[in-house]
């Protein structure tokens, strides 16, 4: 089955939505994403028991953080769907794309001054 969904989406696969980390989400925005959605398994269907619930809590925390720092929590969302729900995936992809389109491009891209991260070593 080949389904059409917005071509502007870049998929990053993770072993479980429960491995989602605040840092990964923020990095996506820093690297230029206009919006991010996390697709976790259906609630109650997590292979690791509660991974998707945890993901949802983290996504909510980062949404709050995005509001606080001015980027806007609306640019991030969590969805639950199973691997067998291709059409639903396409639907979500289009829905999210539409939402982001309404919000406009990430203001970070307007002020793109290159990433300025550096990491020191732990002493």
């Amino acid at each position: 089955m080949r389904l059409q969904y917005s071509s502007n989406i870049r998929i990053i696969e993770m072993p479980c939505s429960g491995t989602i980390d605040h840092r990964v989400l923020l990095q996506a925005f820093e690297d230029g994403a206009d919006g991010v959605f996390v697709a976790g398994c259906m609630e109650g269907d997590c292979h690791f028991q509660k991974g998707n619930y945890r993901a949802k809590k983290r996504v909510n925390a980062v949404k709050k953080l995005l509001d606080e720092i001015g980027l806007g929590g609306d640019r991030l969302e969590m969805y639950n769907l199973s691997a067998a729900m291709g059409p639903r995936f396409a639907e979500i992809a289009n829905e999210m794309t539409e939402r982001i389109r309404q919000l406009g491009p990430s203001p970070l891209r307007k002020n793109k001054a290159g990433t300025s991260r550096k990491e020191g070593d732990v002493a």
Partner: peptide, 25 residues
């Protein structure tokens, strides 16, 4: 997370911030 948040905030203000992070024992 804090470093990233501060960088985003400052980029939004058009005044980018450079950060270095480390965690001491």
């Amino acid at each position: 997370v804090l470093a990233s948040s501060l960088r985003i905030m400052r980029r939004l203000q058009g005044n980018p911030l450079e950060t270095v992070t480390i965690t001491a024992t």
